[in-house]
């Protein structure tokens, strides 16, 4: 491995670690404010800020690492291991969708649109896992409620990221 690629690898590793730590912090902070957690099972999802940031600045492998890493550690910390399955599936689908859509739509889309699309895909992933785990199609009745809350949550997180000056993609 050349000196340069080694430096890049170390930098990516450090960025992933910092973003995962930041994501865990946001997750715990949001969960400790009851107002944010009580809306019909939907929530703001501040921690998804770091996933979105990684999608926009770091590429698919790093974005998946950040998103899934945060979900696993935060899930273990909050004492609800099944949350890892819901959050994991949601994150996987939303990261794939955001990175894919970002490449496809190019200049026709901004962080706001990517965030809204990512939020909707996150909800679809959650509901698919719920269908598998609960064995009842009744869960699909919750999907439109979640995507409605998710649209506004995605708008909020997307707007926050939009206000940040993102570094150039390296």
């Amino acid at each position: 491995m050349s000196r340069l690629t080694e430096r890049r690898t170390v930098r990516t590793l450090c960025q992933c670690a910092i973003l995962i730590a930041l994501g865990i912090l946001l997750h715990v902070a949001e969960n400790s404010i009851p107002f944010f957690t009580s809306a019909m099972g939907g929530k703001l999802g501040l921690a998804n800020l770091v996933t979105l940031y990684a999608c926009l600045t770091m590429g698919l492998p790093a974005a998946l690492t950040v998103g899934l890493g945060r979900v696993v550690v935060a899930g273990l910390l909050s004492g609800a291991p099944t949350a890892i399955l819901y959050g994991g599936a949601g994150t996987l689908i939303s990261v794939l969708a955001m990175v894919g859509l970002g490449r496809l739509a190019g200049r026709h889309i901004s962080a706001v649109g990517l965030s809204v699309a990512g939020a909707a895909c996150y909800n679809v992933g959650q509901i698919l896992v719920a269908r598998l785990l609960l064995g009842s199609g009744a869960v699909f009745a919750y999907l439109p409620v979640l995507t409605l809350i998710g649209a506004f949550a995605g708008l909020a997180t997307g707007t926050l990221i939009h206000r940040i000056k993102l570094p150039d993609r390296r």
Partner: peptide, 26 residues
């Protein structure tokens, strides 16, 4: 990616909201 909010952004948001409301009504 665009630095500014685009028409596609707005379309996505309005689309998701409308589909959700339709789903809730259904």
């Amino acid at each position: 990616m665009n630095e500014h909010v685009t028409a596609l952004d707005k379309l996505l948001f309005v689309g998701v909201v409308l589909l959700s409301v339709l789903g809730i009504l259904l």
